[in-house]
Amino acid sequence: MSIAIVQFGGSNCDLDVLHVLRDVVGVDAELVWYKEEDLDRFDGIVIPGGFSYGDYLRAGAIAARTPIMNSVRKQVEAGKPVIGICNGFQVLTESGLLDGALTTNNYPKFRCEPTYLRVETTETPFTTGFKKGEVLNVPIAHMEGNFYADEPTLARLEQNDQVTFRYVDEKGRVTDEANPNGSQENIAGIVSTQKNVLGMMPHPERASEDILGSADGLKIFKSMAEYISGR
């Protein structure tokens, strides 16, 4: 098993993901520069957080148009699991691999803080290790994390069980106060129609060891690895 971690100019969470995959989960992982055009040798892909190309134009807009995203699309079509974290989520929406868009936080400032997430579905390669309704403590770090989609798209996401995580309070309740960026329906993460592409704004790699204050995000990477092992 080998998982690619895509690097763009401005990525800054790539080494964190590499550490979690290699040293905590115990799988082979490799940093891959954005000019790579062949990802066939990998079993899964992570697009990490950061500020690719300085968020010029729109967050993720330039990265979504680099050569490697054609390779990512090919792996998605082959059914391989792909996760985009924070800026990676923005890249996935900009590339059309996920629905919706990430816009400026309703209060337009960078927010870096712990958040609570509720697991909305376990029917994805990334959430099989959780129980539905489980509440996780996973931090955010973004200025453009406000998830937007039109009403038909939101209805389709709900109907198809594609909403994966929501911002909630400590007791698992969906409230305005628990929503750090104004995302519609408190959405923190979604999957593609085929369920093998996950985008989420919170950073599970920053909540994968107890020394960090929470290891709740570790199950996301473990679930992904177990899914790959079972393919």
Score class of each variant (00 low, 15 high):
K35R: 15
E36S: 12
G9Q: 07
W33P: 11
G88Y: 05
H19P: 09
V72Q: 03
H19E: 12
T122N: 05
R156M: 10
F147N: 04
M143S: 14
N12C: 12
G199R: 04
L154W: 14
A215D: 06
P152V: 15
K80E: 01
E113Q: 15
K35E: 13
E151P: 11
Y34W: 08
D176M: 06
F221V: 06
A59Y: 00
R22E: 15
C112L: 10
P139I: 00
H203I: 01
E151Y: 14
Q184W: 04
G133I: 11
L212A: 06
C112W: 05
V76M: 10
E37W: 03
L97S: 02
I187H: 04
L57T: 14
A4M: 08
G145R: 07
P204S: 08
T193Q: 14
G88K: 05
G213L: 14
V119K: 06
L57S: 07
I5T: 08
L92M: 09
I228R: 07
S52C: 13
N137H: 12
E134C: 12
D43E: 10
R58T: 11
K219Y: 14
G79Q: 09
R118Y: 00
E120M: 14
E209Q: 11
L97A: 09
G84F: 03
G60S: 05
H19D: 13
E37G: 10
L39A: 05
S214A: 10
A188E: 03
D216W: 13
T93C: 09
L97H: 02
Y53V: 13
T66F: 04
